[in-house]
C-alpha cells in the first residue's frame, strides 16, 4: 500500500519542486506569486502522503528520509512532472494536464477507506480546481494570443502530449490500493480529464496531436534524464550531512 502512496507523493513533490524553480524568474511579478502558491500546494500534499507512506511501510522512514534519501530509480513519479520547465507555455500546459487529472482523482478519493488520503483529498480537490483555472486561463491566452505565443503553445502540446497517457495507467501497487478502496481507479478518470482539456484547448485554438507515442516508465523507476539532475540538486545538502537535523 505504501508504494502506491509514494507514487502520488513523488508526483506532487517533483512537480512542486519544478514550479518552485520559477520563483523570482517569472514573466511578471504577479506570476512570481502565483507559481509558488501552486508549488506550495503540491509540496504540502507530498508531505502528508510521505508521512502516511512511511507509517504504512513501518520501516521508520519519515518524509525527509523518503524525499531526500532515495535515488532516481526508487522515485515513482510519472514522467510528466519531472520534465524541465521549458518556457512558460510548457509549464502552464504541464500544470493543466496534471491538475485536470488530479482534480477528479482527489474528488473520487474523498471516499477513500484511508483517513490520511481523505484528508489530502479534501484540501487537494480545491487546490487542483484552482490550478486548472489558473493554468487554463494562461493556456487559453497563450494559445489565442500573439503569433509567438501561439507558436510556443503549439510546441508545448507537441512536447508534452506523449506524457499524458501515463497518468491513467495504474501500477500493480496502485491497482492493489484501488481494489482496497484506498485510491481511485485511474483509467476511469479519462473522460473527466478529456472534458477539461478539450474545453481549454478548444478556447485556446489548440489541437491534440493524432499520432502520439506514449512515454511511460516512471512508476517502475525508469525516468527521463531530467530527474537525476533534479534529485542531485534537491538532495545535495541533505546527503552531504548524514544524520544531521535541519
Amino acid at each position: 500500500m505504501h508504494e502506491a502512496l509514494l507514487e502520488l507523493a513523488d508526483d506532487h513533490l517533483i512537480l512542486g519542486h519544478r514550479l518552485s524553480e520559477w520563483c523570482g524568474h517569472a514573466p511578471m511579478l504577479e506570476e512570481d506569486l502565483a507559481l509558488p502558491n501552486m508549488a506550495l500546494d503540491c509540496i504540502g500534499s507530498a508531505r502528508t502522503l510521505y508521512a502516511r507512506a512511511g507509517e504504512l511501510e513501518g520501516a521508520g522512514r519519515d518524509e525527509d528520509a523518503l524525499a531526500y534519501r532515495r535515488g532516481e530509480r526508487a522515485f515513482r513519479n510519472c514522467l510528466l512532472v519531472e520534465r524541465e520547465n521549458g518556457d512558460f507555455a510548457q509549464t502552464m500546459l504541464r500544470q493543466l494536464m496534471f491538475a485536470a487529472f488530479m482534480e477528479p482523482y482527489w474528488h473520487a478519493a474523498l471516499g477513500s477507506t484511508d483517513e490520511a488520503v481523505r484528508g489530502v483529498a479534501g484540501k487537494a480537490t480545491k487546490e487542483m480546481g484552482y490550478h486548472i483555472r489558473h493554468a487554463g486561463e494562461w493556456v487559453i491566452r497563450l494559445g489565442d494570443g500573439a503569433p509567438e505565443s501561439t507558436l510556443r503553445m503549439g510546441r508545448a502540446v507537441e512536447e508534452l502530449a506523449p506524457y499524458a497517457d501515463e497518468l491513467f495507467a495504474s501500477s500493480a501497487a496502485a491497482r492493489a490500493a484501488e481494489e482496497a478502496g484506498v485510491l481511485p481507479e485511474r483509467e476511469a478518470l479519462r473522460p473527466a480529464w478529456e472534458a477539461v482539456m478539450s474545453d481549454v484547448m478548444g478556447q485556446a485554438g489548440l489541437a491534440w496531436p493524432d499520432d502520439v507515442w506514449p512515454q511511460t516508465g516512471g512508476r517502475e523507476g525508469r525516468h527521463t534524464e531530467a530527474l537525476g539532475h533534479l534529485l542531485a540538486e534537491m538532495q545535495s545538502v541533505h546527503r552531504a550531512h548524514p544524520g544531521a537535523a535541519w
Partner: peptide, 10 residues
C-alpha cells in the same frame, strides 16, 4: 480574470 487570479495570489 488574470487580475482576479493575481489578486487571489497576491
Amino acid at each position: 480574470e488574470l487580475a482576479l487570479s493575481a489578486a487571489r495570489d497576491v
